[in-house]
């Protein structure tokens, strides 16, 4: 990432958006997964990202969660640069301290849950609030139990992940991310690793979150029905770029571009 003038138009945050990608490029070796990507997300917006496997959807979330860096462009979260920081009027690549302060704004739920297997469900949820936010055990457990209640797992607090079904594990993972009270929640194909009969319970939790909170949600998903029902806006991602975007109604009933039509036809047939 190059240095640049902090006050240039390309770099200045836009207060209307909570997340912005400005001409972001990212590649893995020869494969370019983001090509000069421009993306804006408004506060409290529920954005669904759909698209074929390998199109780069997940990379958007991983870049936002600072799990992958970028090669060029700017990412802005809640008015601050994510991958850059300001030093003497110039934007320079962010250091770990800056990244840590930015991560407090974001939370992520993974496709494979990534729960800590040696900890109970409760401890999975209290670990970060205690070690990162400095909550005492009582406060952290109170917060965790409220969240377990919200995801319908009150009675599973003392179970280890191996004793929970996939759907239950994913609901604990959602509670774990919510315990940090992020402004933006990222959901990376959270039902893709689940048996079909367990998908509903996880989607119900997401529905509840979408309806009852003003949290910004960016959801990468293959669940078209869910995207249509919950999202304010749907973005069809293809070949490292936004190929088409619009309201769920527009994307699912009158897609304009051929590639979008072909994709939707293919996935909706199943």
């Amino acid at each position: 990432m190059a240095q640049s003038n902090a006050s240039s138009d390309d770099a200045r945050p836009d207060a209307r958006y909570i997340v912005e990608f400005r001409k972001v490029s990212k590649s893995f070796g020869e494969t370019q997964v983001c090509r000069q990507l421009d993306l804006q997300v408004e506060p409290a917006e529920k954005l669904a990202i759909i698209g074929p496997s390998g199109s780069g959807k997940t990379t958007i979330l991983r870049v936002l969660m600072t799990l992958e860096d970028i090669q060029s462009g700017y990412v802005i979260v809640d008015g601050e640069h994510l991958w850059h920081m300001e030093r003497r009027g110039k934007l320079v690549p962010a250091n770990e301290k800056h990244l840590r302060s930015m991560r407090t704004k974001l939370g992520m739920v993974f496709q494979h849950f990534n729960l800590f297997p040696h900890m109970t469900a409760l401890r999975n949820i209290t670990e970060a609030p205690m070690s990162v936010l400095g909550l005492d055990r009582a406060e952290a457990e109170e917060r965790a139990r409220e969240l377990l209640d919200m995801v319908g797992l009150t009675d599973k607090a003392d179970e280890h992940p191996s004793r929970l079904s996939g759907g239950q594990q994913q609901r604990v993972a959602i509670a774990r991310a919510l315990a940090m009270r992020p402004k933006v929640m990222l959901f990376d194909e959270v039902t893709a690793a689940l048996d079909p009969e367990l998908v509903g319970e996880v989607l119900n939790v997401l529905r509840k979150l979408a309806e009852q909170t003003d949290m910004t949600m960016i959801i990468v998903t293959h669940e078209m029905g869910f995207a249509r029902e919950v999202a304010d806006r749907v973005l069809f991602f293809f070949d490292g770029q936004i190929h088409e975007e619009g309201t769920p109604e527009k994307i699912f009933t009158e897609p304009e571009r051929e590639r979008t039509k072909a994709f939707l036809q293919a996935v909706l047939q199943h």
Binding site: T66, G107, F116, A128
Partner: peptide, 27 residues
């Protein structure tokens, strides 16, 4: 220890030393 464990710790903003102590080494 799966890479996802490190990534979950990063996503939760858990410091590297704490990640070693509480998440990686116990596994």
């Amino acid at each position: 220890v799966p890479r996802g464990q490190w990534e979950a710790a990063t996503a939760l903003n858990i410091a590297r030393a704490h990640t070693w102590r509480s998440i990686v080494l116990p596994q």
